[in-house]
């Protein structure tokens, strides 16, 4: 289950009873994880709304996607 509260995203897995919280940036990246959008395009989308160093954003996107996959919230692709 997902629930957006202010800019954060609360996630709840009823099978385990575990709750997790994504901050605004992680929530935006999670929204972009549709199985089709490549990491580079995700970084471009973030840079479109958030002025920041492109290299930092690309590294953050990579890290956050890996964390989301580690939390079992998305499946890692190719």
């Amino acid at each position: 289950m997902l629930r957006e509260v202010e800019e954060e995203l609360l996630l709840f897995d009823p099978r385990t009873g575990e709750a997790s919280l994504l901050n605004g940036t992680a929530a935006a990246i999670f929204d972009l994880c549709d199985g089709l959008t490549p990491l580079a395009a995700m970084a471009e989308a973030i840079l479109g709304v958030l002025p920041a160093d492109p290299e930092t954003v690309r590294a953050d996107v990579q890290r956050i996607v890996e964390e989301l996959a580690g939390m079992g919230l998305i499946e890692a692709g190719e």
């Binding site: 202010e6 954060e8 997790s20 919280l21």
Partner: peptide, 8 residues
């Protein structure tokens, strides 16, 4: 606290 942190 942010609402999310309070919820957790």
């Amino acid at each position: 606290l942010t609402p999310g942190t309070a919820a957790l």
